[in-house]
């Protein structure tokens, strides 16, 4: 490829984006100190609930998909006759 690498795809930019993401994550949790989060059931009232619950749920879903994938993934040509 002759053209320059787009600035969004340069290693330095990606590193900066990661830093920004970590800052946003921290801010989103810390803001909870100033906001009264109403709990309906109990567990959902714990500090940073949505953060760890969301993260955990995603990890579980990806792992489950991976496991299921071993069972049900087939070659693209599977149905072709």
């Amino acid at each position: 490829m002759n053209e320059k690498i787009h600035w969004l795809q340069r290693k330095t930019t990606i590193k900066k984006l990661w830093i920004i993401l970590y800052c946003l994550l921290a801010i989103s949790v810390l803001v909870e100190l100033f906001v009264d989060v109403k709990a309906y059931f109990g567990l959902d009232g714990s500090f940073g609930f949505s953060a760890w619950f969301g993260f955990g749920a995603c990890v579980l879903m990806v792992l489950f998909a991976k496991l299921l994938g071993w069972l049900i993934k087939r070659d693209e040509q599977y149905y072709n006759d």
């Binding site: 993401l21 946003l24 994550l25 989103s28 949790v29 803001v31 909870e32 906001v35 009264d36 989060v37 109403k38 940073g48 609930f49 949505s50 953060a51 760890w52 619950f53 969301g54 993260f55 749920a57 995603c58 990890v59 990806v62």
Partner: peptide, 19 residues
């Protein structure tokens, strides 16, 4: 405020999990 904050938390941390 609470709903917006928790929703942003949920989505941002899902994003983190993705990457």
């Amino acid at each position: 405020a609470a709903h917006v904050v928790t929703q942003i938390q949920l989505l941002l941390f899902s994003g983190l999990a993705f990457f």
